[in-house]
Design a binder for these strands. Structure first.
Length: 490
RNA sequence: CGGGGCGUAGCGUAGCCCGGUAUCGCGCUGGUUUUGGGAACCAGAGGUCGCAGGUUCGAAUCCUGCCGCCCCGACCA
């Protein structure tokens, strides 16, 4: 009996939802638009967190924690910031409940109305900059390099597990600097941290670029981003790094005295990645058999499945395998020896494939006699018989090879799905087939908007690496000096 | 907020048009045989048919109202 998931090619959306649930990553909760991240899913997120956190520390940042609630007045201090978030905020208006007089249950006590409403943070710039005002007086207090791991709430109309949920987990870095150059450097540095993380850990090639003014973060002067291409040809914004200029310093009156004794406004940045990266990880690599995890982020890197009839056979296999398990663990490889007798080997094979375990080892009596192992790799779904002796070396190398192969596969996919288009007809035709479209843009918001209306494609970014190249806008025919990346996006 | 669909066991469902003891699969419990790609058989347990009214001798089924969920749009730094 087949218990597979919907084929990716048949219904991408159904495939994704089933995969998330069957691989035990997350499920929809009873709370509208919110998601429960299950232990297995969370253990992947924890690995991402740890790797990112290490990178933040290496670049001089410290963690701190700021309040969940933001007074309404804070949010209104930066004009474009309010405008950007006003439509999707959860608001706390009361602080007490009471029993209904008719016994129908508990109701909001109308007597307990807050003088000033509190907003559940959609992002923390405002609370943080209101705090920075007190922390910063002198150039000696700068740069201030802070990160926070937190949850935020954005009341989206429609949600999708990991990609857009009402509440989500993320990290948000908020830094303050004495000069614009330094703040801009920080913006670039953190974008590069994200790109490195995506490529080296998630095995996901990304395009580093800048957002158009239209797509910028509300309150930023410049927004940099990394954009990934998913297997259905849609783009996913995987991380952003914003140069805030002096906007928040001005709004919250954050100034410092420079070496010359003059008062100046502070320069800021903010940057973040969220549990959306889990969505990217799932969509970038997985197949019809389930999740495919890059070894560096796999909670279980190697699973060993014994195949036996009698309990004595299991005993023999366990004894044979135990030094190998110890050796792999000593190398920092996470191994699970699944000797549970609840399920048969075939079931286990399918289950670990669904969960994306990179390497699976099967060992039965046949192997015991021959001094061999059967090693299966998740990325290629191939199996081979290996000598038991020296298996630890083989497996360690194999994990590296899988990490590299998954990246190469994703890179190849992106390259094969990136198209240079020069005419409007080509553009319209290609956008239906998905992928990144590299095309000339005249730089106007009007053209950008028209293209979006007609094709649902947005400018994902102006690649930082884009060479100067004269051409004409694919829609308006006006002159352009570089190509930008268009795509339909999540 | 518009357009469509759906609420029946832990999960997935049939039945509804045409009212008459609640269908099947997965899962679960016990047993036997199995175990190199999601085992087979036997025996069991498990139900406010989303909620509230109404019609009727009798409602999962018909009528009215309400609630919830999903999909497609609008929305989404």
């Amino acid at each position: 009996m087949s218990k597979g998931i919907t084929k990716r090619s048949e219904d991408y959306s159904a495939w994704y939802n089933e995969l998330v649930q069957r691989a035990d990553l997350a499920e929809n909760s009873a709370v509208r638009g919110c998601m429960v991240i299950k232990p297995y899913g969370f253990s992947i997120w924890e690995k991402m967190q740890r790797a990112l956190d290490d990178m933040f520390k290496e670049t001089g940042h410290s963690n701190a924690y700021f309040p969940l609630f933001i007074p309404k007045s804070f949010l209104s201090k930066e004009a474009s910031h309010v405008e950007g978030f006003a439509k999707e905020c959860a608001v706390v208006t009361h602080y007490r409940l009471k029993n209904a007089e008719d016994g129908s249950g508990v109701i909001v006590d109308p007597e307990a109305k807050l003088e000033e409403e509190l907003i559940v943070r959609p992002t923390s710039e405002t609370v943080i900059w209101s705090t920075y005002k007190n922390w910063i007086q002198s150039y000696r207090d700068l740069p201030l390099l802070i990160n926070q791991w937190a949850n935020v709430v954005r009341w989206e109309m429609r949600t999708r597990m990991f990609l857009r949920t009402t509440e989500f987990l993320w990290q948000e870095g908020h830094t303050a600097h004495a000069t614009t150059e330094e703040a801009q450097e920080e913006t670039n540095r953190m974008l590069e941290v994200y790109a490195t993380f995506a490529e080296e850990w998630m095995a996901l090639p990304v395009i580093r670029g800048a957002k158009t003014p239209n797509e910028r973060f509300a309150g930023a002067e410049d927004t940099l981003c990394i954009e990934g291409l998913m297997q259905d040809g849609k783009a996913l914004q995987c991380g952003t790094s914003h140069f805030l200029g002096q906007n928040f310093a001005r709004a919250f009156d954050v100034t410092f005295t420079n070496k010359a004794g003059e008062r100046e406004l502070v320069w800021g940045t903010s940057w973040g990645v969220s549990t959306r990266l889990m969505g990217a990880l799932i969509m970038a690599h997985s197949d019809d058999n389930g999740l495919v995890l890059p070894p560096k982020l796999a909670p279980i890197q190697v699973v060993i499945v014994p195949i036996y009839r009698a309990p004595e056979d299991l005993q023999k296999i366990s004894e044979k395998v135990s030094p190998l398990v110890a050796e792999l663990k000593a190398r920092g490889i996470s191994v699970k020896f699944d000797d549970s007798d609840n399920n048969k080997p075939g079931w286990k094979f399918a289950e670990y494939e669904l969960r994306g375990v990179p390497v699976r080892i099967a060992m039965g009596m046949r192997d015991l006699e021959n001094g061999t192992l059967e090693i299966a790799r998740r990325d290629t779904l191939t199996k081979e018989t290996q000598q038991f002796d020296g298996a630890a070396d083989f497996i360690a190398n194999l994990l590296d090879e899988i990490q590299a192969n998954i990246y190469q596969k994703a890179l190849k996919f992106r390259e094969e799905n990136t198209f240079r288009v020069d005419t409007w007809d080509e553009f319209k035709e290609q956008i239906e087939r998905g992928g990144f479209l590299s095309a000339h843009w005249d730089g106007t918001a009007e053209t950008e908007e028209r293209i979006k209306e007609e094709t649902k494609a947005t400018i994902r970014c102006i690649p930082l690496a884009a060479p100067e190249e004269s051409g004409v806008d694919v829609y308006s025919g006006k002159p352009s000096n570089r190509r930008v990346i268009f795509a339909r996006a999540y």
